[in-house]
């Protein structure tokens, strides 16, 4: 009994610490992204701590309820988006640390949870009663319907791969951490994995609603679209949800495709014993965490920053087409390659 309470208390503290750390990291990555994008465009750009300032300022600002909005839906959606984004984090392994809720959910749950912040944004847009937000919300829905399909194909292909090659629950993220996908396949399968990675990169941009797929917000067309009526605390919640979800989404890609840690390699390569305190390998944790943050940075750089400075915004029909036809075909091809690789 006593032991369980201690375990629960530890999990609680661990969970809160993770959440706070992820909020901090999400905002930090947002700041880095903005700074790098600015340097790409030969601007000075905002300081890296600007997102923190933005959030604290938004929390101080007045929260306005539009006259013809459905106020309880309007105000609850930002909370739902933020809470779900945080929930996803608890199911994902952050670097060397295993997910807290890892035993209670699997990949399928994460894919569903990832859809909820976007849904909340769309519902919030519809409930705000502004024509601009309504159009933005419609676009958000169309976009979601388009990119969920390739995303599902990627996840299913990987789960199928894990099912035949690894022991344990094929949909659990722990399985992927223990058995990196690249080790399960031959050359043909690796080609398939590259295709899957490419399609998830395309999905990533849209999932995070960044250019060229920031169509629901489209500043110059819809004046902020779904967020047109949001202000103050509600806006801050969406802002935080976006930061956390960006981090979560990239973490998912890292967990699925690049679950490698650096410390085992260092130990085997140099034969050094990394210092540990009270049986906890602190040094290995620090190295692995930094390596994980580096992986997240690399993926964010190529999937978000680099893409958003080099493309113009697409139209909704074209964006939907890109997901439903080319991206889906690439994902299916990846699936076929993996199947062929395993069958051979």
């Amino acid at each position: 009994m006593n032991e369980e309470i201690i375990k629960l208390g530890f999990a609680l503290i661990y969970g809160i610490a993770t959440i706070l750390a992820v909020i901090f990291l999400g905002l930090l990555y947002k700041g880095i992204d903005r700074k790098l994008a600015a340097r790409f465009q030969s601007r000075v750009g905002p300081p890296i701590r600007q997102p923190f300032r933005d959030v604290s300022k938004l929390f101080m600002k007045e929260t306005i309820t539009p006259e013809n909005s459905v106020s309880w839906i309007f105000h609850s959606m930002p909370l739902i988006a933020f809470a779900t984004a945080l929930l996803i984090i608890l199911y994902l392994p952050i670097g060397p640390f295993a997910p807290i809720l890892g035993e209670y959910g699997d990949l399928i749950l994460i894919v569903y949870l990832l859809a909820i912040p976007s849904l909340a944004i769309a519902v919030g847009g519809f409930s705000s009663g502004s024509p601009v937000a309504t159009i933005g919300a419609q676009r958000e829905m169309v976009l979601m319907m388009s990119y969920e399909f390739p995303l599902a194909i990627v996840v299913l292909s990987l789960a199928w791969l894990a099912n035949i090659n690894a022991t344990g629950n094929a949909f659990a993220l722990g399985t992927f951490t223990a058995n990196p996908v690249w080790e399960m396949v031959g050359i043909v399968g690796a080609m398939g994995l590259v295709l899957l990675l490419a399609s998830i990169f395309v999905v990533l941009t849209s999932e995070l609603s960044k250019l060229p797929f920031d169509i629901p917000e489209a500043e110059t067309e819809l004046a902020g679209g779904v967020f047109a009526e949001y202000s103050g605390r509600d806006m801050a919640m969406f802002y935080l949800a976006d930061a956390v979800k960006s981090f979560a989404m990239v973490t998912l890609v890292v967990a699925l495709f690049f679950p490698y840690n650096l410390s085992p390699w260092i130990i085997s390569q140099f034969g050094v014993e990394l210092p540990a305190i009270m049986g906890i390998p602190i040094a290995a944790y620090v190295i692995d965490l930094l390596f994980f943050l580096f992986k997240v940075f690399i993926i964010m750089f190529f999937a978000v920053t680099f893409v958003r400075v080099s493309l113009a915004r697409l139209k909704i029909d074209k964006a939907s087409y890109i997901y439903l036809v080319p991206t889906t075909i690439i994902a299916i091809m990846g699936m076929v390659f993996i199947y062929m690789g395993s069958a051979l």
């Binding site: 465009q41 500043e219 110059t220 113009a312």
Partner: peptide, 15 residues
């Protein structure tokens, strides 16, 4: 370029 959401080109032209 800005209306198209292509801010990099906006900054390039204005530079």
């Amino acid at each position: 370029a800005h209306e198209l959401g292509f801010d990099t080109l906006l900054h390039l032209s204005w530079k």
